[in-house]
C-alpha cells in the first residue's frame, strides 16, 4: 500500500515537473505558427533589418530593426541602473540591516514589486519625463527616462533573488574570513558574494526578463518613435510597446507582423537564457 502511494506520488511529482516543458512547447507552437507566415510574407530580412515601420501606409512597410535596437538600449540602461543598486541593497539586507529595520524594509521592498506597471508609468510620465526635459533637454520622452523607470521596476526582483542567494551561503564562509582578520566588508565581498554568484546571476536574468518585457510603463515614457535613436535623450520604441500600441487595431498582415514581433522578442529571451546558463555553468566549475 505505502509502496503504491509512494509510486503514485512519484509519478504525480514527475508529471508536475513536465508541465513547464509542455507550456514552453505550446507557447512556441502557437507563436511560431502565427508569426512565421507573416515574416515569410514580409520577407525575413526586410522584417528584421527594415528601418521603416509604416503599417497603415499602402503599400505598408514592416521593418522592426528600430524596435530591436530600442529594446536593447532600454534594457541595457535598466540593467546599468538597477543591477548595482539592487545587488548592493540585497547585500545590505542580508549582511548589514539590523533585525528591527529589516522588519520594515523587507515588506517595503515587496510592496515595490506589487505596484502595477501602469502606476509606474504615470509616475514616470509626471515626474521623470519633466525632470529630464528640464535639466537635460529634449522632450523628456527618452531612453534615459525609460531606463531609470525600468531600473526602479526591476529592483524588487533583483533584491529578492540576490538576497536569498546571499543568505543561502553557509555562515562558515563569513566567519572563517573574519577569523582570518578580514573586515566585515572584505568578508562579505570576497567570500560570501562570490559564493552567491549563481543566485545573483539568476536575479539578473529575471531582471533582464522584466525589463525587456515591460510594456505598460515603457509605453508612457519612451516616446515610441519607430526609428533608430542617436542619443539617450531621444525617444525610442521597444518590441513590447510596438505590440501593445497597435494590437488593438491590427488585422491581417499588420496583426501577423505584431505577433512576429512577439516571436522575435521570444527568440531574444531564449538567447539571453542560453547565454546565462552557459555563464552559470562556467561559474559553477570555477568554484
Amino acid at each position: 500500500m505505502t509502496m503504491q502511494v509512494e509510486k503514485l506520488m512519484h509519478a504525480v511529482f514527475f508529471i508536475a515537473a513536465l508541465v513547464s516543458i509542455i507550456a514552453v512547447a505550446l507557447i512556441c507552437i502557437f507563436l511560431f505558427a502565427n508569426g512565421i507566415p507573416a515574416m515569410r510574407e514580409i520577407g525575413f530580412l526586410d522584417f528584421l533589418l527594415g528601418q521603416r515601420w509604416a503599417p497603415m501606409n499602402s503599400p505598408p512597410s514592416f521593418g522592426i530593426f528600430p524596435m530591436i535596437v530600442g529594446s536593447i538600449y532600454v534594457t541595457a540602461g535598466a540593467i546599468i541602473i538597477g543591477v548595482p543598486v539592487g545587488v548592493l541593497t540585497a547585500i545590505f539586507l542580508a549582511k548589514y540591516c539590523p533585525a528591527k529595520l529589516y522588519r520594515v524594509v523587507k515588506p517595503a521592498i515587496q510592496l515595490l514589486a506589487g505596484i502595477p506597471s501602469v502606476v509606474y508609468g504615470f509616475f514616470g510620465l509626471m515626474v521623470i519625463v519633466p525632470f529630464i526635459r528640464t535639466y537635460l533637454g529634449g522632450s523628456g520622452y527618452s531612453i534615459l527616462s525609460a531606463s531609470i523607470l525600468l531600473g526602479i521596476m526591476i529592483l524588487p526582483t533583483i533584491i529578492g533573488v540576490s538576497e536569498s542567494a546571499i543568505r543561502a551561503v553557509p555562515r562558515e564562509y563569513y566567519e572563517g574570513a573574519v577569523a582570518l582578520g578580514a573586515t566585515h566588508e572584505r568578508a562579505v565581498f570576497a567570500t560570501v558574494v562570490p559564493a552567491a554568484t549563481s543566485g545573483i546571476l539568476a536575479s539578473i536574468i529575471l531582471g533582464v526578463g522584466r525589463a525587456i518585457g515591460e510594456t505598460m510603463a515603457v509605453v508612457m515614457v519612451a516616446g515610441n518613435q519607430a526609428r533608430v535613436p542617436s542619443s539617450i535623450l531621444q525617444g525610442v520604441r521597444t518590441m513590447t510597446t510596438n505590440v501593445v500600441l497597435e494590437m488593438g487595431y491590427a488585422y491581417g498582415l499588420h496583426r501577423g507582423s505584431l505577433i512576429a514581433t512577439g516571436v522575435i522578442l521570444f527568440v531574444f529571451i531564449l538567447m539571453i537564457n542560453l547565454l546565462f546558463s552557459v555563464l552559470k555553468r562556467r561559474t559553477n566549475y570555477g568554484s
Binding site: V24, I27, I205, V208, L265
Partner: peptide, 18 residues
C-alpha cells in the same frame, strides 16, 4: 525542466498575452 522553467520566467508578459 530547469531550462524550460528559466525560459518561462524570462518570457515577457506581453508575449504571454499574445
Amino acid at each position: 525542466v530547469r531550462i524550460t522553467a528559466e525560459t518561462l520566467s524570462g518570457i515577457p508578459s506581453i508575449v504571454y498575452g499574445l
